[in-house]
Design a protein around this nucleic acid. Structure first.
Lengths: 117, 117
DNA sequence: CTGTATCCCATACGATACTG
DNA sequence: CAGTATCGTATGGGATACAG
């Protein structure tokens, strides 16, 4: 029987759990669609994310090497974000998931109403 | 500027947030690899999931129409789970994500250590 | 403009005990 | 065997205020 979780730390679980948080995929998708963006532009595009969570999410993505952060030494400060090369290679897979979700959400919603809960 | 979150309920967010919980992808992957499985078999395969969370996860996946649940009227009870047709169509995309994670986890771990936190 | 710091809450999850 | 029920905890994330 096939098993997918070596006892101890499973790197696959670790990586996927990051993408599974509330905002990562959305931030990545937004950057993928719009290219380089300022902090405030991302915030305007995803307007229901809190400032705190946008910062936290971007920092995590940067730490993982999926997003690049560039600070311009200006006043007022300007910070631009864009996907790294690795981040770019991830996007087609996320897009496939999004497309699948779009294509099956009706069936899923129907199932939720149908299945006696 | 492209936006991906219609105000109000975004079905894509809704669907993806389910997959992003702690155990759903792992349960789906396990069922995909092993075919039909009894509750206890899944539990043995994913041995660090609690009985409660395995039940909750399977019920959610069933409600969404991704997993099928069959109860045999026996004593002691026997319950078997397998992917539905819709669940099967989702698996290649999850597998792509897993493969990506496997292929890039070294780079990600290195990045985490490198980026000054 | 781009953050940090602090506080607070909802809920996801685990541990344990119990049941048909 | 395959669950429920109950409780406790950890933490993800929002609101707000403040700072460089």
């Amino acid at each position: 029987m096939k098993n997918f979780h070596p006892t101890g730390n499973c790197p696959v679980r670790d990586v996927l759990s990051r993408l599974g948080d509330k905002w990562s995929m959305l931030v990545l998708t937004t950057l993928s669609a719009n290219g380089t963006m300022r902090f405030s532009d991302i915030h305007k595009t995803i307007d229901d994310i809190s400032q705190r969570m946008l910062t936290v999410t971007l920092r995590t993505l940067e730490s993982d090497g999926l997003v690049h952060r560039k600070v311009y030494p200006e006043v007022p400060p300007r910070v631009e974000y864009c996907l790294t090369e690795m981040g770019t290679t991830l996007m087609p897979h996320i897009q496939n998931l999004v497309d699948w979700a779009l294509g099956h959400m009706d069936e899923i919603l129907t199932s939720r109403e149908t299945v006696k809960g």
